[in-house]
């Protein structure tokens, strides 16, 4: 794990609207995520979980505070630069996969690279490598509709890390999957992080959050607590 955080939120607040009807979605949030680290974000509906993810991904600008991705201060970037940074550094994984139905798995994964100007052949090679990391190389030429939900989500994870992209922002990635399939997806996500990516996993499910190194709790837009993996003896007894 390197020392410099890949993502840093420094005193981030987000307010929607103004005046008496203003809604504070995030309030003074500090968070750092390093390579090799998966951070789960939990909280009840409306606690600010999804807003945190959209701010971290540069989709929403904070009302105050600063977001830094791989050393770049997002507030200093023009919209075009911000879009480039998103394409090169960030990968989103959503509950409903968000794959392009008219493109095959490998085309979906190669898409962000091609949008970034990569030659098609090089983008395809990188996409194939990314699909291999989620054990889907053999399904590379299938369309999303021909893949199971779990496979589609693994394609989405491959797309999130393709071409050296290293910050995975996952919003309830197992929400539409059954328990066993969800676990396969989490294992893949964990594997990518263990191989040098960094991730934020927004979830309401404690069992899924437990795959993270740290779990932060949001309430009313504030981080109210944090639980870290302790690596100590467990209630499972002497087997550990």
């Amino acid at each position: 794990m390197s020392d410099a955080p890949l993502l840093k939120l420094d005193g981030v607040s987000v307010q929607y609207g103004s005046g008496p009807t203003a809604v504070t979605a995030l309030s003074g949030v500090d968070l750092e995520v390093r390579r090799g680290e998966l951070v789960a974000v939990m909280g009840s509906s409306g606690s600010g979980k999804s807003t945190l993810l959209t701010v971290a991904g540069g989709l929403v600008r904070p009302t105050s505070g600063e977001v830094v991705v791989d050393g770049q201060w997002l507030s200093t970037l023009r919209p075009g630069q911000l879009a480039t940074l998103r394409r090169r550094h960030l990968g989103f994984v959503f509950q409903d996969y968000n794959l392009v139905p008219a493109l095959t798995a490998i085309e979906n994964v190669a898409l962000p690279l091609e949008l970034d100007g990569w030659k098609a052949s090089r983008a395809r090679r990188a996409a194939r490598d990314a699909l291999s990391t989620v054990e889907l190389a053999e399904q590379a030429h299938r369309f999303p509709d021909d893949l199971s939900g779990g496979q589609q989500q693994r394609v989405a994870i491959a797309r999130a890390v393709v071409g050296g992209r290293s910050l995975i922002l996952a919003d309830e990635p197992t929400g539409a999957l059954d328990s066993t399939t969800g676990e396969v997806v989490l294992r893949m996500l964990r594997g990518r992080v263990d191989h040098g990516a960094a991730g934020i996993l927004v979830t309401h499910d404690a069992r899924h959050a437990a795959w993270a190194d740290r779990i932060v709790f949001l309430r009313d837009g504030r981080i109210v607590d944090e639980s870290a993996y302790r690596g100590v003896e467990t209630m499972a007894g002497s087997r550990a």
Partner: peptide, 16 residues
């Protein structure tokens, strides 16, 4: 909840 999640994390590591 922090304690419960801590225990969950420990067990999940064993599972990984």
């Amino acid at each position: 909840r922090t304690a419960t999640l801590g225990a969950l994390q420990d067990l999940t590591r064993l599972k990984m």
